[in-house]
Amino acid sequence: MPEQLLFATEVILNGLMAGVLYALVALGFVLIFKASGVFNYAQGVMALFAAMTLVGIQTGQVPFAHLINTILGTEIHHFGWHVPALLSILLTLGVMILFAILVERVLLKHLVNQEPIILFMATIGLAYFMEGFGDLMWGSDIKKLDVGLPQGISETIDTTTYEWFGYGFFIDRLDIAATIVAVILVISLTLFSQYTKTGRALRAVADDHQAALSVGISLRRIWVIVWSIAGFVALVAGIMWGAKSGVQFSLSLIALKALPVLMLGGFTSIPGAIVGGLIIGVGEKLFEFAIGPMVGGATENWFAYVLALIFLVFRPQGLFGEKIIERV
């Protein structure tokens, strides 16, 4: 194979894996948007919050330590124990479910039947609240997240590809793990929504609220479930991203990358979120590889948005959306 093609292939593979993360965050958006018509601005912060909570629980941090110490004049920071990774993940999931219940009780319940823009504003408020609350609870320092996922360049892939093509691919084992986890997650979610009572209820609520009520589905319960699932998806995204670049504020900014993904994939399409994520991931890496050097690099910051804008002009309904036919 020619050298350039090999480089490009490696870039595409890396892009696919970055795309998996975008897809995960976008998936969280789509789930909530479909079920409740809420564009959840806080999805990215949820990922950050989940990752912080996971690290906090795992390393035995005392929540609100700073606050407690200031008020009581104490000097406590750690419980002095370590919680196993799997248990920490389950506990964090519990926290995300609790969060979903709170969101429903405090926000959604009261804002039902409001304009979408009001709900959107509420989630902006929610995002800033969570950000502050997360800092207050776990501190704002950059944290290392390690739940035992494999990390580092895969030597096997490097040497095998070197033997085959005379060029060794550099692929992070964490990316491979993230991809596998994301694929399992998406398949499970799909099966769940197709073949269980609650899965069908989720789809029913996404389709028609009145009809859903008439067959006995409680909207409020479904909202809690949807936000819990979105919390779970945020946790998975938070773990992957956190393991890669540490748990820090910039994690919540990947949510901004989800926006072009959604424009591409459509706001209500789960396959759209996944394919859109992959396209953006691959697209921005390839663009940087091919065009970046000519324009001085850093194209990854804006490429996704430009692509999304172009897309909006030609296919406003997104990749998988039904064609919008104007009534005249």
């Binding site: 789809r203 029913a204 389709d207 009145q210 009809a211 859903a212 008439s214």
Partner: peptide
């Protein structure tokens, strides 16, 4: 009166 089905299902 105005059919309320789950249209995508």
């Amino acid at each position: 009166q105005n059919i309320a089905l789950f249209k995508g299902m």
